[in-house]
Design a protein around this nucleic acid. Structure first.
Length: 289
DNA sequence: ATGTCTTCCCGCGGAAGA
């Protein structure tokens, strides 16, 4: 409940500062910057989930993957009502990424630099907000399309590393977040949740993920919790969620200054218990302002 | 490996991708 306006309140030296903090005309107390990433597995199926989650969690920026709709079909108006501006890069049926932000931003990329110009897969959007470059990525799964499909994944990761290197060389503060489709270590998937030859954990996949870390990027979730089972995805099949047979494949990598500001980074596990959930849950990262 | 979900279409069920 909002306290009465300052003018109507009895003058009290003791609680003046409390009134000031909660009165809109005064400058807000600086709150942590809250950024989240979420593979929603179709925004049209999950619009209600996202709206409800935004209201409950109040992130400054939410990065979405697998919106599975064309750019023009993204339901931007629904999010505008909650104060979030939307920018989407979509395609028919598959893939697709979008940014929702309640802070001002500009789009800096709509595709991953370095990919062939005829690459039509909607997997990357990047913005500048809060003096930070924020890349939202949906990395190829790599299990379909045979060896060519897997080679596409590896190539994509190499272009991502090159792009990250050039941003860091330019001195940018950087967050690269999204669905990486990579289990970085043996701790990052439940025993039996994946066959040993799966593209999410092949050695070549992990080597390319490590090459991102070697640029000086920090895995936000592991910076807060260096070991232990932490998952962000549970397959719809075979009772993966009730058995907690999950994967940690949604990540946020941070440049050094962002890592210094890191307060917390954690998946919102309970979102997986919603009716008709996405198979991924949001990962929330908080920074000192 | 598959007990599911989402999309598309030449649909009225099945393929493909995850």
């Amino acid at each position: 409940m909002r306290p009465p306006p300052a003018a109507a309140a009895p003058a009290s030296r003791l609680n003046d500062h409390l009134i000031a903090r909660s009165t809109p005309s005064f400058k807000k107390v600086a709150l942590p910057v809250k950024i989240a990433t979420w593979n929603v597995n179709s925004i049209r199926q999950r619009e209600g989930h996202v709206l409800s989650w935004l209201e409950r969690n109040q992130p400054d920026i939410l990065l979405l993957q697998e919106i599975k709709c064309e750019t023009a079909a993204f339901p931007a108006q629904a999010f505008a009502k909650l104060g979030y501006q939307a920018e989407a890069v979509g395609q028919k049926a598959y893939n697709g990424v979008a940014v929702l932000s309640r802070v001002p931003f500009e789009v800096t990329q709509r595709t991953l630099p370095g990919l062939p110009p005829d690459d039509a897969q909607a997997r990357y959007i990047e913005i500048r907000a809060l003096n930070t470059i924020i890349g939202n990525l949906y990395l190829p799964n790599g299990n379909s399309g045979g060896e060519a499909g897997y080679a596409y994944k590896l190539g994509w990761m190499e272009h991502l590393a090159q792009h990250a290197a050039s941003l860091l060389a330019a001195g940018e503060d950087l967050i690269l977040a999204g669905d990486y489709n990579v289990c970085p270590t043996e701790e990052d998937y439940a025993p039996g949740a994946l066959p040993p030859e799966d593209a999410l954990l092949r050695p070549e996949t992990r080597a390319r993920f490590r090459s991102l870390l070697w640029l000086g990027l920090t895995d936000a979730v592991r910076a807060m919790r260096p070991s232990g089972q932490i998952y962000t995805f549970w397959d719809y099949q075979a009772g993966a969620w009730p058995r907690d047979r999950g994967l940690r494949i949604d990540h946020a990598l941070l440049s050094s200054r962002m890592a210094e500001r890191l307060i917390e980074a954690l998946p919102d596990r309970m979102e997986r218990d919603q009716p008709q959930p996405s198979d991924h849950v949001p990962v929330i990262i908080s920074f000192e302002p």
